[in-house]
Nucleic acid binder design. Sequence first.
DNA 1: AATTTAATGCAACATCATTGCAAATATAGA
DNA 2: TCTATATTTGCAATGATGTTGCATTAAATT
Lengths: 138, 138
Amino acid sequence: MEAIEILNQHKLRVTNTRLLVLNFLMAQQKAFSHADLEIQFSKQINRVSIYRVLYTFLACKILCKFVDSNARVLYVFSAQSQHQDEHPHFKCNQCDQVIHLPQLPQDYIALLKEHQVEQLHLLVEGVCKDCLGEEKMK
Amino acid sequence: MEAIEILNQHKLRVTNTRLLVLNFLMAQQKAFSHADLEIQFSKQINRVSIYRVLYTFLACKILCKFVDSNARVLYVFSAQSQHQDEHPHFKCNQCDQVIHLPQLPQDYIALLKEHQVEQLHLLVEGVCKDCLGEEKMK
DNA sequence: AATTTAATGCAACATCATTGCAAATATAGA
DNA sequence: TCTATATTTGCAATGATGTTGCATTAAATT
């Protein structure tokens, strides 16, 4: 799907800023921080606008947001409506690729049955299949 | 165990600053951000010193550090050496109590077998047993 | 008590995030 | 296609958060 279609689908105005950011994020399965995007678009978009575009996309669930182990907030495109709620992510430490993971098994959550679970944030970091493959090639 | 013993055990100098912070954190099973502690000790300890005390305690594993869903870095006392490595936490949204959880089951991690898992960060948020109990009392 | 070594406070700075407002731009309707 | 309206953007200012260097103070060792 095209970026412009996605904006229309969510009844968002089609602006240059939004197209730039969305096309960029759609082009790769990587997660970016605000700082990353700020550098990427330093000549074209104001920092504050980037914050606002991210905020808007997040509200529409065009993007997923998660926090890495260094408390960096990362944004990644999520082929929309596919991932409704908060879900686990795998992030490759080498290529920064992000993979959306299935929910945790119920029997683990059942361990917590005395408590009422509201949210569950899981981030797995490591080396992805592709990068492992490349290492073997060498 | 007393705060002073813990400091000795880790060959850390026993200073007023460290005793204040450690006693405070040991007295309750809650997680605090740097900002929380800064407010708590605003009259007694310099902000920078709080950063440095936290850094030192973390290196000794006297504290656990984790990041919540709002990218706030939280510190919680951990009866030491009990929790060697990174492990999941449950944080109560009502009383802020933090409970240290067991590691994830291997069969979930096995799901990721194509990838090489290096770190795994899990934070569960919800309402703890105690707070649920109190609600029923009303 | 004197010496050595480490910790603290302070000031300055760097980074990251938010807000209000005026100017620019996208959309809807004539 | 032009105009009116509502939204988005850029800019400036501010606030929050985190880091560093250095002089001073305090803890441990002898």
